Amino acid sequence: MPSIDIHHAHSLAHDDARRAVQEVAEKLSDRFGVEYDWAGDDLNFRGAGVDGCIALAPSELRVTAQLGFLMSAFKGPIENEIRRVLDERFS
């Protein structure tokens, strides 16, 4: 199964970074029906054809995801959109 593994540096305070990750999750949920929940500083998400995690660390985010068969055809565009959103929210 194709996977996504993106590391992205940030300089936000912990609460601000967590709030930004929450906002991203809410948009994913509204737009794509993705379900999510927090486990400590990890936001786990799942939806049709995707299962992943946004791990929040003091100076870095790590986005990992496993894509199902149909979603794997869109791996490149999905990675590009994730990077765009991370740049927008965390740079």
Rank of each mutant, 00 (worst) to 15 (best):
D87H: 06
D87G: 15
H14E: 11
E81M: 11
D42T: 10
A73R: 11
T64I: 14
G47M: 01
H14Y: 11
P77D: 04
F74Y: 14
V63K: 00
C53L: 03
D16H: 14
A48C: 00
G68A: 09
V24A: 09
T64K: 08
A48D: 05
G49Y: 03
D87S: 09
F69P: 03
D5T: 00
M1R: 05
M1V: 14
D37C: 04
S11D: 15
S59F: 08
D30A: 15
E81N: 08
V21M: 10
S29E: 07
T64S: 14
D30W: 04
R89F: 14
G40N: 11
N80K: 13
D15C: 04
N80W: 01
G47S: 01
N44V: 13
Q22Y: 04
F90Q: 05
S3M: 08
E79D: 03
R19C: 03
T64V: 15
L86C: 13
R31D: 15
G33C: 12
M71G: 00
F90H: 02
G49R: 03
V34H: 07
W38L: 07
I6S: 03
A17S: 10
V21L: 05
L61P: 07
N44S: 05
F90C: 00
H14L: 06
E26N: 05
N80S: 15
R18E: 09
A13F: 01
F69E: 07
A13N: 04
V21P: 06
A20R: 10
I82T: 01
D41G: 04
S72R: 07
E79N: 02
V50Y: 01
F45A: 05
A20V: 01
S29N: 14
H8I: 02
D87V: 01
E35H: 14
K75Q: 13
Q66I: 12
D37Q: 12
L56D: 03
M71F: 10
E26H: 12
M71T: 09
D5Q: 00
L56E: 07
E60D: 10
V24N: 09
M1Y: 07
A57R: 10
K27F: 11
L12D: 11
A55H: 13
E23S: 14
G40V: 09
D16C: 09
E26I: 02
